[in-house]
């Protein structure tokens, strides 16, 4: 009689901890060292200063940079403008994405869905700069495409400025709002809508009381994209913003001469997004993700 031996298993099976390390070491190295490390460096730098005469870094702790941002009306205005642009872009994206995603997920034929998704995604394949310059041409006062369309109606192109930035950013980030909402809507069972209608609710009521609460986490996911991407943008403001500056533009113009001040300005959107995520978490929207 021979002794039975266990079937030989792989190395990973016998060393589960090593297997886990193999799985996670690369992403962890990236996250901790490259991502969190540079964020920490940014924070630290924000509390330093530059010697006005020598241009040397003075590595002593000071709140001077933040004081300057929050007391100088120009910087403060730029900060509020940036937040309001990000909020408006998020709102516009939501208003445009909801009906479109609803059409894609629940009205259009199932066989059309891949095509519709491809159409939503196609703009993402084009370079960011190409798209922004295209909008520069569209927005050009008097001779731009928008002016050409709006002139007969007695309106004029919004031109370069605050509204131009909002329109361009809304265009840029719209797919990031459509896709999560679309995904949320496809997961919503038909019977849920039937049940609401069966219980006496018309379309509008069903949308408010059933569809919106169920897809709320998807909307939040989309808004995190549109809000934070808008908050950190500076190239769009440069190309179609005219004289309007966003926080990113201040970072861009000051980081060579005054790195600590640029770091302080760059910290602000990070803090705002963190506050936004905290607020979202408190609303319970992330519980079911």
């Amino acid at each position: 009689m021979t002794t039975t031996t266990a079937t030989p298993r792989g190395f990973g099976y016998r060393h589960p901890r090593l297997r886990l390390a193999g799985l996670l070491s690369a992403p962890m190295a990236w996250l901790v060292v490259v991502y969190l490390g540079s964020l920490a460096a940014l924070f630290l730098t924000a509390f330093w200063t530059v010697d006005d005469f020598t241009g040397q870094l003075v590595k002593t702790f000071t709140m001077k940079n933040f004081q300057q941002v929050f007391t100088n009306p120009a910087y403060l205005g730029s900060m509020l403008r940036t937040v309001s642009i990000a909020l408006l872009v998020t709102l516009f994206c939501l208003v445009l994405a909801l009906p479109l995603a609803f059409f894609m997920a629940r009205v259009a034929r199932t066989s059309w869905r891949p095509l519709l998704i491809a159409m939503v995604l196609t703009p993402l394949w084009a370079s960011y700069l190409v798209k922004v310059y295209a909008w520069r041409a569209m927005l050009q006062p008097e001779t731009g495409v928008l002016a050409w369309f709006l002139d007969p109606l007695g309106l004029s192109s919004p031109g370069y400025g605050y509204l131009g930035i909002v329109i361009t950013l809304t265009y840029l980030w719209l797919p990031y709002m459509i896709l999560p909402i679309y995904a949320g809507l496809t997961r919503l069972p038909d019977s849920m809508l039937d049940a609401s209608s069966d219980l006496g609710a018309k379309g509008g009521r069903t949308f408010r009381s059933v569809v919106m609460p169920i897809i709320f986490p998807s909307i939040v996911a989309g808004s995190i994209f549109t809000f934070s991407l808008s908050l950190g943008d500076y190239i769009t403001a440069q190309i179609v913003g005219g004289k309007v500056t966003m926080l990113g533009n201040i970072v861009q113009t000051t980081y060579v001469t005054n790195l600590p001040f640029a770091a302080a300005v760059a910290t602000i959107p990070v803090v705002i997004v963190l506050l936004y995520l905290l607020a979202v978490r408190r609303s319970g929207a992330l519980d079911n993700l």
Partner: peptide, 16 residues
Amino acid sequence: PYARDVNTVFQDYALF
């Protein structure tokens, strides 16, 4: 459906 005096129990229950 919302104007009909009938109610339905669904196969998957469809509870909100």
